[in-house]
């Protein structure tokens, strides 16, 4: 047997082993959030300048194999970087976090795209449910025997669709209707 043949055999064996392992790996793991390394921010335009804030507490469960994605946001964790703005945006005219302490997104459809996925499903925010589309990229690596995933993306929603901005705040001349929601999530497989 020549050296080339040996190499071919080894390659074939490795390939088969990899395929078997991949098959055995189905169904894939469910990923949950590494909160300390994840961020969920929003940006809207106020008088021509970007106004940015974040939510500090939220949970995400993602199973790429089963095609499920669920996000729950604790609206009381709103952090605008300014006390007065926290009170205003958390208050009745905007998120009304006392009455609607949670926002929720559940993907009812998860389509594979060239760079990741497109999740489609209901978003419930301030008691209003509307279907939104959320494109995101998904990359996984192995670290210490666990699958580590990064889920990054952004989507634009209209705040007035959800009643975020009541009364005088319905006007969009100085507070834009379009809100970009950005997320950069570190996730780890629950199975470990």
């Amino acid at each position: 047997m020549t050296a080339t043949d040996t190499l071919r055999r080894i390659t074939l064996w490795l390939t088969l082993s990899a395929c078997t392992a991949a098959y055995a790996g189905t169904p894939g793991p469910t990923y949950t959030l590494v909160a300390a390394r994840s961020s969920l921010t929003y940006t809207f335009e106020q008088a021509g300048a970007a106004n940015v804030g974040r939510f500090n507490t939220f949970t995400v469960r993602f199973d790429p194999t089963a095609g499920t994605l669920m996000v729950v946001i604790d609206m009381r964790s709103l952090d605008t970087g300014d006390g007065q703005r926290n009170d205003l945006l958390g208050g009745h005219d905007f998120f009304d976090v006392a009455r609607y302490p949670q926002a929720r997104f559940t993907a009812t459809r998860l389509q594979k795209t060239a760079t990741g996925y497109l999740a489609t499903g209901p978003l419930t925010l301030r008691g209003v449910t509307r279907t939104v589309e959320v494109p995101f990229t998904w990359r996984t690596t192995q670290r210490g025997g666990r699958a580590i995933g990064t889920l990054d993306g952004a989507t634009v929603i209209r705040r007035l669709d959800f009643g975020v901005g009541q009364g005088q705040w319905r006007a969009t001349e100085w507070l834009g209707n379009a809100v970009t929601v950005r997320f950069a999530l570190d996730m780890t497989s629950a199975a470990g």
Binding site: A47, G48, A49, N51, T80, G81, D82
Partner: peptide, 20 residues
Amino acid sequence: ARGFPVSWFNLVQLPNLVRP
């Protein structure tokens, strides 16, 4: 410093001079 970026007549957004 308050975390409200400044724009010039909604046309140009200026950089923040300091962090909040």
